[in-house]
């Protein structure tokens, strides 16, 4: 289990992570989402022992990670900005990793390169962006560590390749029961991949839940009443459980958080002309949550001016 305890990290006076804590159980796919600059990559780098936190610590089964080679042998980090040894090809990189990771499997490496049809003898500098990403993923999967850290790992991959890579990661996790932490600013990427998702905003985890819980918890409601309804009246009806409310005369559109069933019952008591309850995609939930946190832009470029936001 990875335990992140009260991590704070500042860069040149700017706080990247503020007293952040979380726990990532073994055998899970943990997704980190958030706006640009939310602190996803910083958190991942602290978890990978690249950054040293100003305060707090990260440990793996109780053992701190920073500057600890024994712990670092257990994970591999695939960064957003990939790095390969100058002039190296995949074979050279495989030898390099084999040197450092005792579980590195050449058979798996060959198998994966065959699946993805990668030329192992060609210099990586001659690969396209997507191919470099594939190569990094193959190398990481061949190391067979206990933990994977993928930072924006699907960047540059086409849809088919994304699915293939997801499948490969998923298979490895299922087969060996390992843990993966993925970051993305796009929830669509993590929608059907992660077991658990954490939303980061301004260096803090805003929420962290099982994906299925999130999907079932939040719902989109469209209601048409017989008479005009104000936003305040509807908010009162929802008992503060609406993430977002938009009123236009008699029609109300709202996103309901936990306890949507109770709210639905209370709305029904008002005898609406029309009541529709729709499931939300993770992307929509993310957007509404961010809007609720004041992270939105109007056309004039002003941040957090959405009048309908509830917080």
């Amino acid at each position: 289990m990875i335990t992140v305890k009260n991590i704070t990290k500042t860069f040149d006076g700017q706080t990247a992570l503020a007293n952040l804590s979380c726990e990532i159980p073994d055998g899970r796919i943990y997704g980190l989402v958030g706006s640009n600059g939310a602190g996803k990559s910083t958190l991942l780098r602290i978890m990978a022992g690249i950054f040293k936190p100003d305060s707090g610590e990260v440990d793996y089964d109780g053992v701190p990670v920073f500057d600890n080679p024994a712990v670092k042998e257990q994970f591999i980090f695939v960064p957003d900005d990939l790095y390969f040894l100058p002039g190296a090809n995949m074979k050279r990189m495989a030898k390099f990793y084999k040197n450092f990771y005792p579980n590195f499997s050449m058979e798996r490496f060959e198998h994966l390169t065959n699946v993805l049809k990668l030329n192992t003898g060609k210099a990586l500098s001659g690969f396209s962006k997507g191919m470099r990403r594939q190569a990094a993923t193959v190398l990481a999967l061949s190391c067979r560590p206990k933990y994977y850290f993928f930072d924006e790992t699907f960047d540059g991959l086409d849809q088919i390749m994304r699915d293939t890579v997801k499948k490969l990661i998923y298979e490895d996790i299922c087969e060996r029961g390992v843990t993966a932490v993925l970051t993305s600013h796009s929830l669509r990427e993590l929608d059907n991949t992660c077991d658990e998702l954490a939303l980061l905003h301004q260096g803090k985890i805003v929420f962290s839940h099982e994906v299925e819980d999130i999907k079932t918890a939040a719902k989109k409601v469209q209601v048409a009443f017989a008479e005009n309804v104000t936003k305040e009246e509807f908010m009162e009806l929802c008992n503060g459980k609406a993430l977002s409310v938009r009123c236009e005369g008699r029609v109300v559109q709202a996103i309901l958080n936990k306890g949507a069933e109770e709210t639905e019952a209370r709305i029904r008591e008002k005898n609406p002309v029309l009541l529709e309850i729709l499931p939300l995609s993770l992307e929509e939930i993310f957007t509404y949550e961010m809007e609720a946190l004041g992270y939105s832009f109007d056309t004039n470029g002003k941040e957090g001016t959405d009048e309908t936001s509830n917080q």
């Binding site: 990978a48 690249i50 024994a70």
Partner: peptide, 10 residues
Amino acid sequence: WDFFRTLPAS
């Protein structure tokens, strides 16, 4: 160094 710092060495 981001890359090397992830590898198992202090």
